[in-house]
Design a protein around this nucleic acid. Structure first.
Length: 692
DNA sequence: TGCGATGCTCGTCCTGCATG
DNA sequence: CATGCAGGACGAGCATCGCA
């Protein structure tokens, strides 16, 4: 209470003092992400008056959390932000929040986009499905979604990611301090020279680890992440060479993507593929004034060649055309008016031997989304789609791949063309499979079933108990299955609860928590250890109390309460809450229990509901939960689908079924998937010997 | 003591990115 | 390289507070 009181007693002057002190001890140069710096900050050094280090830290977290301070900054910058905020607080109550708002938001991942798009429909269709179940269903849908249908989401993600990167670059650019730090880098010079290569004149590349590229005159910032570099130019400035309009060039590893926004352009390349986008009125490929962004790397080339493409010439409108070697798209651009969008930008992309063209609205072959169009191609395949106005592609039913012999050379690739042929749902999978079968057998083709084991990122793990029937649904599982504890690191067994199988309270991991070896002992700590004991802290609850069921109405509503009348003792979820603040606590974690103003130290235990998962995946639990080192909880999930509503045809689902590059996922994701697959195989092979 | 209101967190999913 | 987090929604569980 006293601590909480102290928190409340923070005067503006005290807060400013704290911020000043923080500024003083922030390491210089402060170029790390704020979380990292914050994590390593010696908060005890900040103690002043009657404020301890942990209190200072808590106050800081309150400031940042409640006021939504932008997180894409260094800690030093955040402190400055907070300082302004506090100062404004006294001037005008209306002013104080504004400067801290509008944080940069990361683009939604393709899956999230799919989820958001589909959820409303599923909610209405299956009102009985819980949120969790709905998520499972949708994830399954997404997993099984044909690659070409996913492309739409991936493309949107790519576009927004580029915008995000631009905004982020702009934001960082505005940070003079950061710029100073960046200027000190020697890599800058290297990068700037790279950016002026005669061939890729308009594109800044950083083959290695270069970090900064600047144009001498115009202010520009180029940043490299790992093996990539981002060249960014702000308004009226350009890194590459667009005197008037800004251009942003990004090269991630071996990839290139060309994008143009209003007056800016971005070039980026992906391994063997490239995507060019011009959402608005940008001219990428060939505006006399503006430099062309497109670039070609290794096997792919973004063609801004006026020669090869009439499309590429739209003075006002952006257009990008790529003509790799064997790309059929490039050829179509040559001799056809395909991919032309007078007002709208259009992009055609064709990596190696493949080409895909999609038209949604105004473009016939290439795909045009309102003001932009993107065409993607898969390796050895070519697909053309035009759901709406396209005269080219027409899929009979659900097939997202169509041919248009006449109008589109894109849709036809004599050799490698894989036009849709599956009358039902999995036409794309088939076609892709046919194409990629030679190389990868990962693409499976089961036209009607959703069991296609294709590059499903997620590993479906079954516990030894739930292993039996393939189609057995979690939902359909009898309550008894709940006795099998879930094989999730989040599930932690408390010694006292071990009597009740499957009812072990879960300790929800926290990042720092999982690493701190001492955590376990801190879990369940009595609040008395804190400076100020909480009134009826939940942490202090003794296991015996769990035997008394709550009479909360909500508890009574739980369908499975009958099975587990008692409550197992809870365990403190948040590491920081129950432990000493000194070393570990990270941002967002409160150093000590007593100092947490609002959030009570909860225990990561679920009610009986979660223990008897009639409807949840928790039913498939492995008894060895607590002993299993943490894996991703997502791995420990059953893929049974009995309760899953029948898979819908994708016809309605995608207004623009688009082919997807099979390598659309990041390397990180791919590696992760590989690991999961390994885990899965290991699990299956060694499931019998697994502990019980 | 019990209940409603409130607020917070979890759980589901996937993916990209940051971090250690 | 491995791992954790953020991002979306939202029902459910849970603790706390206030009131009857």
């Amino acid at each position: 209470m006293a601590a909480a009181k102290s928190q409340d007693q923070w005067s503006q002057e005290d807060v400013l003092t704290l911020l000043q002190a923080m500024k003083a001890i922030i390491p210089s140069p402060d170029i790390s992400e704020f979380k990292a710096t914050e994590y390593h900050l010696d908060w005890n050094n900040l103690a002043f008056k009657n404020y301890s280090g942990s209190m200072c830290r808590q106050k800081w977290m309150d400031l940042t959390a409640k006021q939504q301070v932008r997180k894409h900054r260094t800690l030093e910058e955040l402190v400055l932000d907070a300082e302004k905020h506090v100062q404004n607080l006294s001037k005008s109550p209306k002013n104080y929040v504004e400067p801290l708002r509008n944080p940069l938001k990361k683009p939604l991942t393709p899956y999230i986009r799919f989820f958001l798009a589909k959820r409303p429909k599923y909610v209405t269709q299956y009102p009985n499905l819980s949120t969790v179940d709905l998520t499972k269903v949708l994830s399954k849908e997404f997993r099984e979604l044909p690659a070409e249908h996913k492309v739409k989401y991936f493309q949107d993600f790519q576009i927004e990611k580029l915008e995000y990167n631009i905004n982020l670059a702009i934001f960082r650019k505005k940070s003079s301090d950061l710029l100073k730090n960046l200027n000190k880098s020697n890599v800058l010079e290297k990068q700037s020279s790279i950016a002026q290569s005669p061939k890729n004149s308009s594109v800044a590349q950083s083959p290695n680890n270069s970090s900064v590229a600047q144009s001498p005159k115009n202010s520009s910032v180029a940043q490299s992440l790992k093996n990539s570099s981002v060249a960014q130019s702000l308004k009226n400035s350009s890194v590459a060479q667009s005197p008037k309009n800004s251009s942003v060039a990004q090269s991630l590893k071996n990839s290139s993507v060309a994008q143009s926004l209003k007056n800016s352009s971005v070039a980026q390349s992906l391994k063997n593929s490239s995507v060019a986008q011009s959402p608005k009125n940008s001219s990428v490929a060939q505006s006399p004034k503006n430099s062309s962004v497109a670039q070609s790397l290794k096997n792919s080339s973004v063609a801004q060649s006026p020669k090869n493409s009439s499309v590429a010439r739209s003075p006002k409108n952006s257009s990008v055309a790529q003509s790799p070697k064997n790309s059929s798209v490039a050829q179509s651009l040559k001799n056809s008016s395909v991919a032309q969008s007078p007002k709208n930008s259009s992009v055609a992309q064709s990596p190696k031997n493949s080409s895909v063209a999609q038209s949604l609205k105004n473009s016939s072959v290439a795909q045009s989304l309102k003001n932009s169009s993107v065409a993607q191609s898969l390796k050895n395949s070519s697909v053309a789609q035009s759901p709406k106005n396209s005269s080219v592609a027409q899929s009979p039913k659900n097939s997202s791949v169509a041919q248009s012999p006449k109008n589109s050379s894109v849709a036809q690739s004599p050799k490698n063309s894989s036009v849709a042929q599956s009358p039902k749902n999995s036409s794309v999978a088939q076609s892709l499979n046919n194409l990629q079968n030679q190389k990868n057998s990962s693409v499976a083709q089961s036209p009607s079933t959703s069991e296609v084991p294709r590059k499903s990122p997620r590993v479906v793990k079954r516990s030894s108990m739930s292993k039996a029937p393939e189609n057995s649904s979690r939902v359909g599982q009898s309550p008894s299955t709940s006795e099998v504890p879930r094989k999730s690191s989040r599930v932690a067994q408390s010694p006292s609860t071990s009597e009740v199988p499957g009812k072990s309270p879960r300790v929800v991991k926290r990042s720092s928590m999982s690493k701190a070896p001492e955590n376990s002992s801190r879990v369940g700590q009595s609040p008395s250890t804190s400076e100020v004991p909480r009134k009826s802290s939940r942490v202090a609850q003794s296991p015996s109390t769990s035997e008394v069921p709550r009479k909360s109405s909500r508890v009574a509503q739980s369908p499975s309460t009958s099975e587990v009348p008692g409550k197992s003792p809870r365990v403190v979820k948040r590491s920081s809450m129950s432990k000493a603040p000194e070393n570990s606590s990270r941002m967002g974690q409160s150093p000590s229990t007593s100092e947490v103003p609002r959030k009570s130290p909860r225990v990561a235990k679920r009610s009986s509901m979660s223990k008897a998962p009639e409807n949840s995946s928790r039913g498939a639990q492995s008894p060895s939960t607590s002993e299993v080192p943490r894996k991703s909880s997502r791995v420990a999930q059953s893929s049974s689908k009995a309760d899953v509503p029948e898979k819908h045809s994708d016809d309605d689902d995608d207004e623009c079924p688009i082919t997807l590059d099979a390598t659309g996922t990041s390397q990180t994701t791919q590696k992760r998937q590989q690991r999961k697959r390994k885990d899965e195989t290991n699990d299956e092979s060694g499931s019998g010997s697994k502990k019980f």
